[in-house]
Each structure stands twice: as structure tokens, then as C-alpha cells.
Amino acid sequence: MVGFVIVSHSELLAQGVCDLASMMAKDVPMFPAGGLPDGGHGTSFEKIASAIEQANQGDGVLLLMDMGSAVMTAEMVLETYGYTDVKMVDCPLVEGAITGSVLSSTGASMEEIIEELATVAEQKKFDF
């Protein structure tokens, strides 16, 4: 199954998104990379790199980020390690994590999940 890493400035937010997605897709590898190693807010290169290692069970890993330095730091981890099976996805964090992990639990490939996540931002929560 494709694994996921949730990168956020907040340790609690990253953990919370993983908890919520895991409830909906319990066997999918979901690992948080939130906050700084000392517990403060920010994004940590080491936490992202280590979460990727844990999330990769052979079918690749998708990274979902909140914003700003989370995106830039994730990008630097990918450049540094030169992974071929780890990709960043630009989508809403919570909705993307749930859609992606549920799809992953059905055995979808990384490419299929990326394609689906590209549409998540356009899905409306309600019609006026």
C-alpha cells in the first residue's frame, strides 16, 4: 500500500490528520512529521526524512503538506535523498489525506492516487 507522510508546522495537527485518516483506512501507513524536534511549531527536515522511511513499505510514499516552509522543507528532503518513489502532492491537507488513504487501502497505485488528489481541491462541501 502507498504510504503517506503528513507535514505540518504543528505536531498536533499532523498527528490529528493521521489519526483521522487511519480511522477511515486503518492499515495504510500514515506517519506525521509535525513541528520541530523540541515540540515547537515549524517544520523539521529530520522528522520528514524519518517519517518517509517509516511510511515506505515498498509501494511508495505521498507527502501532503500544510504550507510555506512545510512545502519548501519537504522539497529539500526529496532533493537531498533523490527518492524515485516519493512524491509531494498539492491538495487540501485533511481532505487529501482521507481521500488518499482510503484509495490506498483499496490497493490503488501511487499514480492513481495522485490523479485523484488533483481533483480534491475542486470538490465543494456544499452548494449555495
Binding site: 520541530l36 515547537g40 515549524g42 517544520t43 527536515f45 510555506g68 516552509s69 519548501m72 522543507t73 529539500m76
Partner: peptide
């Protein structure tokens, strides 16, 4: 990159 934690780290 590994210690700053904010946007100025990667930049």
C-alpha cells in the same frame, strides 16, 4: 535547513 524550522531555513 535542519535547525531553523521556518521558511528562512529552506530559503
Amino acid at each position: 535547513v535542519s535547525t531553523v524550522g521556518g521558511a528562512s531555513g529552506p530559503l
